[in-house]
Every structure is written in structure tokens, then in C-alpha cells.
Amino acid sequence: MNSSKINRIKDNAFKYFGIACTVFGLAMLAIFLGNIIIEGIARIDWAFITNFPSRNPDKAGILPALVGTLWIMGLTAVIAIPLGIAAGIYLEEYGKKSKLATLLEINISNLAGVPSIIYGLLGLEIFGRIMGMGGSLLAGASTLSLLILPIIIVSTREALKAVPSSIKEASFAMGASKWQTVWHQLLPASFGGVITGIILALSRAVGETAPLIVIGALAYVPFVPASPTDEFSVLPIQIFNWISRPQKGFAINAASAIIILLMVTFIMNGIAMYLRNRWQKKVKW
């Protein structure tokens, strides 16, 4: 056997290995989704969405948790997106390459890997206690913002890096200031990458339970939160609570709530993808 033949076999083997890996991941997802949908889809009706939690699994609903999740998503986006993008721009375009900058860079990457419960403890102390927000929506959203900031910062920087340097240089050559270059050239061109990072980050925030339980998010909330200072519950907490109950009815409720949570995430991703596509059409050089 000559070496080119061996290489071809190796090549093929790797290809099938790759296919197997992909199929494995997809199959697991399909089994999980199928399982959840079979168990939970029948339970979803309007009352399930508009009812408050109850000891009776057939009467229980997710209204406060669903509204809480939407609040948390909105507030987290409002806090984290501007901070994250601004920090990304600073680090990529303005920050001097110094030892301090390298240190910052390493730390931001590390922060992305810190277990979420640690952020919960930090949030409880800083937002909940020192800043006096207690267990409010604002405290929860601030904590989750910290949690997803590193992801947004890193993806913003990657997206900015991906813009061809010829664009940047051309802009400077035309006499544009740094700010004009960032605002009119770099940001629009990197918008697709930035928004992908934001989607990933927000999707992670929506699924978090541990840090919110630590800061004092509740499981039984008999009212719909109406302002950022209200106490709240979120869907993952409701799901976690139901899944750990002994009665079978609550397990079905949990499956139904998971479907709703998935739908919320899908809708959010859909909007972001629509924005990205529309934007990319507009960017022309």
C-alpha cells in the first residue's frame, strides 16, 4: 500500500467519524425534543399560560414565571448589550497593547468559564445587599448581565477583528476620525457577528436557574411582576420546582413549561436572525 492510499483511507475514516459525531449530537437533541413534546404538548393550553402556580398540577400555570422570564430577558439585554459592545470596541480599537490589556484579555476569557452560581453569590452581595435591590428583577437582570458580558465582549472583538483592515485603512485615508471609522464602518460591517454573540449570550441567560435562586428569585409568585423592582420567578425555576415534585402531573407540567421556554428562545433567535439578514443586505462597499 502506498502512502497516498493510506492517506485516503485516513481521510475517509475521519469523514465518517465526523458524520457520526454530528449525527450523535443531533440524535440526542431529537430524542430529547421528541420526549418532551410527547409528554408535554397535550398539557399546553391558554389556561396553562395564564394561570398562577398551584398545588393542583391540572390547575397550575406559568404566568408569573413566563412574564418574569420576558422581563429578565429584556432588562438583561438593555444592560448587557451596550456595556458589552462598548467594552469590546474599547479593547479592540482603543486599548493600548500593554501588560494590563493582556491581563484584562485573559481575565475576560476566564470569566466566561466561571460557574454561574459564583455570579449569583456576587450578585446577591453587590446588587442584592450593598445596592439594596433585594431579590428584584433588576438585581436578577444585573447579575445575569455580568454573567453574559464576557461572551458579548469576546464575540464583539472577534467580529471587529474579522472586518478587513483595508476597510479601516481606507476610512482613515479619507480623513475619518477613529470614532467615525468605528461607527460608520466597523460596527455595521461586524453587526452579524456581534448579534450572533448576543443571541448566544441571551439564550444562556434565559436558561439560568442557579444564580437567580441565589439572589432570591422565588418559586411561588402570586402576582405578575409589573416593574423592575418587583420580585419574580422565571421559567427555569418553575421547571426545576415541578420536576422535583413526586406527583406525575407536575412532571408533565415541567415538560410543557420546557416547550414554552424553548419557544421563547426560538422566537428570540428568529428575531435576531431576521435582523442580521436585513442588516447584511444593507452593508455594501
Partner: peptide, 14 residues
Amino acid sequence: KASFPDVKVTVGLS
């Protein structure tokens, strides 16, 4: 809540 609708009782599970 059914008897005293004006009292907001919230329950957590820490």
C-alpha cells in the same frame, strides 16, 4: 390568596 387577595405571599426555595 383566595381569602385575602391583598396580601402578597411569595415563597422561595433556597
